[in-house]
Every structure is written in C-alpha cells, then in structure tokens.
Computed example of a mutant assay.
Amino acid sequence: MIDRYPLGIQTIAKLFGLEGKRLEEHYVRHLSDFMSWQAREHAPDWLLFPENVGPYLSIDETSLSQGELYTVVTNKQANGRKGALVAIVKGVRSDQIIQILKKIPRRKRYMVEEVTLDLAATMERIVIRSFPRAKLVSDRFHVQQLATDAVQQLRIEHRWQAIDQENLEIELAKELHKEYVPDLLENGDTPKQLLARSRYLLFKDETAWTPAQRQRAEILFRIYPDLEKAYRMSRNLSHIFSSTKEKELGYTRLAQWYDQVEKAGIKAFSSLRRTIQNHYITILNYFDNRSTNASAESFNAKIKALRSQFRGVKNVDFFMYRLMKIYA
C-alpha cells in the first residue's frame, strides 16, 4: 500500500495515525523488498531503467541534499508518473554519465528521436554520445531566462550608481552642515528606490503591469532609456518563441533579433548573443515540435517534494528506492 503514495513514510504514518519512526523501520525491514533490492549497492551512485526509454526524453540536473547534484533523464510520455524515470546518476561529469547511460541496450538508445536539455555543453555531449540519433532541443525558457537576467543585470548596475550618487550627496550635506533631503520623483520614489522597486515589473509583459507599475515604468524608461531598450529586446525574444509556428519564420525572426542586439551594444546582452550563436541549431529545433524542458523541471519539483517529505535525504539508497517505486 505504501508504495502507491508519493510521500515520505513519516507523512504516511501521520495520515493513518501511526508512529512514523516505527512504521518507517518496519517498512524498510519487513513490508518492502528494500533489504533484498538488487540495485541497492549502487543506488546512491546511479539507477537505470532501460524499459522506460521512449522516443522523447528530457535531461536535467537536480540536487538531492546539501547541494549534491544528480543528472536525471526522464521519459516525457510518462507525464511525470510511473515509468517517467529513465536514469538518475550522481554528478554532472559527462564521461561518468555517458558510461552509465551506455548500459542501456544500443537498440533502445537508437530509438530516441528527441531530447530536450538546457544550454550546458556537458548536457549536449551526454546526449550526443548516449543517444546518437536524437535531435537536440535547447529549452526556450533557459534562453529567455538569460535575456531576463541581462535586463536585471543592467538594472542592478544603474542601482549601484544611484546608491553611490546618494552617498556622495549625503556626505556633501554633512560637510556643509546641512540636512540631506533626497530628490523625489513624481511617484514618490528616490532614484535608488525606483530601480529597486522596478525589479518585478521588468519580469512581466507590459500588458500585465498594474497602474502603479505602469507609472513607475514610464519614469524608469525616461531616466534610463537603455533599460527600456533592454526590456523591449527581452520581451521581443519571448514573443518570437510564443507566437512563431514555423521553423523558417523562427530562423528569420531570431536572426533579426540577433542583429538588433548586436546594434544595441548593451554589454549585459553580449553573453546572451554568444550563447545564441553557439546553440543556434538546437534553439531553432524548438520550432519543430515546440518541445521544452518543462517536464524535466516538473520532475525535479516532484523530487524536491519527496525530499521535503523525507525531511532531507539522510539515507540516499532508501530515498532512491522510494523514487524507483513511485516513478520507475
């Protein structure tokens, strides 16, 4: 019965009015086959389920405890339920992960048609070596996140400048034995406050701004026109992914957007421009099936939820056993 619940043993014990510690110990030693589980010896390092391989996979990394990273491969067609987990391997070193994934029979690995992944070069190498016939699709949300990060980086740069300017004015007022009175903008913000309070509106499309955010944005963009230019470029990139249906059109629109970024000369966008240049083909592959790595992110959330039910992962092999029972 316990194996049907994606919960920690302590939580299940509470649901049924039982003592958690005793139920967990009884489950480990008697109710389950954990003690005779064949994969128990290597479970903390890797688990592999070749029977769950499908034509559409996702690969991502997640943390189990204390920042310890694991690489997770999932089958999209399982929709995060039983049969979703294909592999979970300790670490993110490509050679080690490839070695484990190559334990999957060649016939199974060659049937994989598409793998979604983030923009990490190590992940690309893992997929190319492990699933040779698969098409790589870079996750659009990772690309968009880089654009958003570039906008926020520019905002933070302006904020530090505003803080420095305010400190100079305070020091000058002290030297002149005068009271420091900050300059207030028409919405009541100081320049420093304006930049701090604009953080969230820069994450959103302008159609979702509240009246107060709209007023703040108008002031912000008037004072910092480069920030408006960066924001517009970030939103334009998002609109390309959300509104483009055909790959050829996506190619054209991304090329035009790339030229705009190059001409804008905003330093914060230089890393994004190089990233798109280096991953252009795999980013464009998104427009074939509009595939994203959302399923991998969702599965990572399930792992974190299970981890929280365990109140942390103290016994890694038992945690892996529960993960196997629920999702493999």
Rank of each mutant, 00 (worst) to 15 (best):
Q145T: 09
R125T: 04
R159L: 15
D95T: 15
G91Y: 11
H142C: 09
N75S: 04
G67P: 05
A162I: 05
Q193V: 07
R125S: 08
I163N: 01
I128E: 11
W160D: 14
L185I: 08
L101K: 14
R129D: 12
K90P: 08
T71S: 08
L146K: 15
V181H: 09
E113M: 10
N187T: 11
V53I: 15
E124V: 12
L136I: 14
Q152S: 06
Q77H: 10
I88L: 11
T74W: 00
I170N: 03
G91W: 01
L172T: 13
A173Q: 13
L184F: 15
R81C: 09
R129L: 11
E179P: 04
L85P: 06
R159D: 06
Q96L: 14
L184D: 03
K90Q: 01
F141W: 14
M111D: 02
P55M: 14
A87Q: 11
Q153F: 06
K82I: 13
I104K: 04
R197E: 14
I88E: 02
K174P: 00
V86M: 02
N187S: 11
I170K: 14
S63M: 04
F141T: 15
Q144R: 02
D95S: 12
E68H: 01
K178V: 10
Q152N: 13
V115H: 03
I170W: 01
L119S: 03
H177N: 15
P132T: 05
W160C: 08
